[in-house]
Design a protein around this nucleic acid. Structure first.
Lengths: 166, 166
DNA sequence: CCTTAACTTCACAAATTTCTGAAAGAAGCG
DNA sequence: CGCTTCTTTCAGAAATTTGTGAAGTTAAGG
């Protein structure tokens, strides 16, 4: 009952890719980046070329290009180049990617800025101002906590999965 | 230099509403819910009626209705009814709302489900399966941590802002 | 009960987003 | 250097999303 190693249960994999991508979309990610990311995640090496992505997902090179641009900008995927080849390779780093996910920090920072502005506009002694100040404090708190949390995670991961070469 | 309490710096407030809403949109929230939410956040009592929202944001009752439906479903806003009135009132609870924001937990739960399915499809001993299992472990870790973090926050808030009647 | 105020739902028009094919742009390799 | 292979950019067609007006529904108050 062991499967042939090569293309094992291709359909199940594709099903996973689509359903995981759908979740990401629902959480706000664009469709193509989500699919590309899911495809990479489900690939054995965590690496695929443009062509492979296009073929697996049935999308044009242009679509791959656009998706990858987004993913690299948000650090969810790394771009590689085999020295001496025109082929670009895209990689999920296994850890790098959820670090990036936690990197909604950038987003939070902007929220904080907007809130600070809001407190200033409304006045810190108005009820609305106070409410916003409290919210701001919350975000600042979360920022700190997340940093610590990630440290704890790395610790735990190393114990649980071994401190792999990565 | 103290302002007239009534409609203080209406324009500045509106500017805040739009800029904060823009941040929320960028983070994936739909436009109208974002604007409605920001408007509530900047209102002194944290409560506005449908009509007030429509007027401040220059949108139709239908748009208000749609936005509010989303916001209540995600628990970012509570719906109230003054007993003996046809007017619906919508409220941000000051604390309730970031609890809700943390409630991307629901989202995370779905991701976890999808990942579990992925591990099963791919097989837990394939490289991809292992990578996903690790990711899954990460999310499970985050779940736990967030619960604890929120406890710490409530503690801190009570100290910092006083344990108000709310 | 009937009237009337308020909210919701629905169908559609407008605006935006998304993806493609085609052309232009890099970079290895002969 | 020029050929070839791969990637990116761009303009536009198609699909989706968004917000409105209008009709429908609910419930308060006479």
């Amino acid at each position: 009952m062991t499967e042939t190693a090569g293309d094992r249960d291709t359909e199940a994999v594709s099903k996973f890719v689509e359903s995981f991508a759908a979740q990401l979309v629902e959480a706000g990610m664009q469709r193509m980046p989500a699919r590309v990311f899911a495809a990479l995640l489900s690939s054995d090496e965590g690496v695929l070329t443009s062509a492979e992505l296009g073929e697996r997902l049935q999308i044009s090179p242009a679509a791959v290009s656009g998706a990858v641009r987004y993913l690299t900008m948000t650090h969810m995927v790394a771009r590689e180049r085999e020295p001496g080849s025109r082929r670009e390779r895209y990689r999920v780093h296994g850890d790098q990617w959820y670090e990036a996910l936690t990197n909604r920090e950038a987003v939070i920072k902007r929220w904080e800025a907007a809130l600070r502005e809001g407190v200033a506009s409304l006045g810190p002694d108005t009820p609305a101002g106070r409410r916003m100040a409290e919210t701001l404090a919350f975000f600042e708190f979360v920022d700190e906590e997340i940093v610590k949390m990630m440290e704890r995670w790395r610790d735990r991961r190393d114990k649980q999965f071994g401190d792999v070469p990565r």
